[in-house]
Write a protein that binds this DNA or RNA. Structure first.
Lengths: 198, 198
DNA sequence: GTCTATACCGTGATAGAC
DNA sequence: GTCTATCACGGTATAGAC
């Protein structure tokens, strides 16, 4: 950002383009030819900035994972009653998903064909594990229903949260507001869909 | 099934193998070479049974879509109070996901690069639309909370349900029982995760 | 920093023997 | 019904000019 006008690529700006195409076509469905056309430079020019396709994937999923793991270190996730920490992490996960949408989308679609993909899958499992422990504590406190397997509940909760990447698209006017969507997700997850009167 | 021993392939049996590999490696990440190795026959032999890779995909997603749309025609989905029909469709969707797991998994991962994929995406949207209308009716009856956008609620509900394909694996001993898992999903979706006492 | 040209390999698909 | 041999093409990646 030293120059005012930025018409040459850096690994960062190239990543923005690449991640968009990866999400449109799928990582395996994207060729360097696709990337070069989307970036407006030749295939070989891409190799001047990054070592190859997989480096772009690694940078992208790293960014997503950093965002997610960052949540677990925030005050709201380490202090207070377990149920409140669970809700905090849920809400913040929704927010990170929205803020880092293309990167998290890519992360959630990784299959495990390359070493980078397998590493990403392992780190994701680690994140799930950490969250699962939080839920377990909330059950012990009597704040979450105990009649449901905790691993199952974690998976369903984050299955719901992660499904955001399938349809959420940020609007130019900033609507729907990020915190409002996060509120709705938390509300539905913890209070359910049924009308309050039951 | 006229012959007792079945050691030669039909399009159907070949599909079973192909869908497994598609789900392991992703459709785009799977080559005919991969398929031939998994099937134990040569690449060219595969072309004797099917016209190509895309036909295998088409057969697979068709089967998944047939299963899902079939639900909407069942008595439990067309008769009774809207809220009960919503719960019925939710429960049955879980059951179909489990029963046709590899086919539905593949369906839920298509990106839209080929005509077959775009057709699949369109039919999926159609299914979501039908379900969304059911939810709308349940809200009108006062049985589902009205303070949440109905399209959003539908997406989150089915985001949760569909996330099953990411981790559910049928056990050899038939555990966890299919209907039990479906019950849990319905319970969490409609009553929420919080302990009943609140 | 970007280009053209090219190496080299794996891809989906076909021909034709058995 | 399965095979080997082969095709044309597009894939990732590199070399070297500008």
């Amino acid at each position: 950002m030293t120059t005012a006008k930025r018409d040459t690529y850096t690994p960062e700006t190239l990543l923005t383009v690449a991640v968009r195409v990866f999400n449109e076509r799928g990582y395996d469905g994207t060729s360097m030819e696709h990337l070069s056309r989307a970036a407006g430079i030749s295939k070989s020019s891409i190799y001047h900035h990054v070592t190859g396709k997989e480096e772009l994937l690694r940078r992208a999923v790293s960014r997503a994972l950093d965002g997610l793991f960052g949540i677990l270190d925030e005050p709201g996730a380490v202090r207070g009653r377990a149920i409140e920490r669970v809700e905090y992490v849920t809400r913040r996960t929704v927010e990170v998903l929205m803020a880092e949408l293309p990167y998290v989308t890519l992360l959630l679609r990784v299959r495990g064909n390359t070493t980078t993909e397998r590493w990403a899958l392992e780190r994701r499992r680690e994140f799930d594990q950490r969250v699962s422990e939080l839920l377990k504590a909330a059950v012990a406190d009597g704040d979450l229903r105990a009649d449901v397997d905790i691993r199952l509940a974690t998976r369903l909760l984050f299955g719901m949260v992660n499904s955001l990447v399938e349809w959420y698209r940020p609007q130019p006017d900033g609507f729907p507001a990020e915190d409002q969507l996060a509120d709705t997700v938390v509300q539905l997850a913890f209070e359910g869909m049924r009308a309050s009167g039951r």
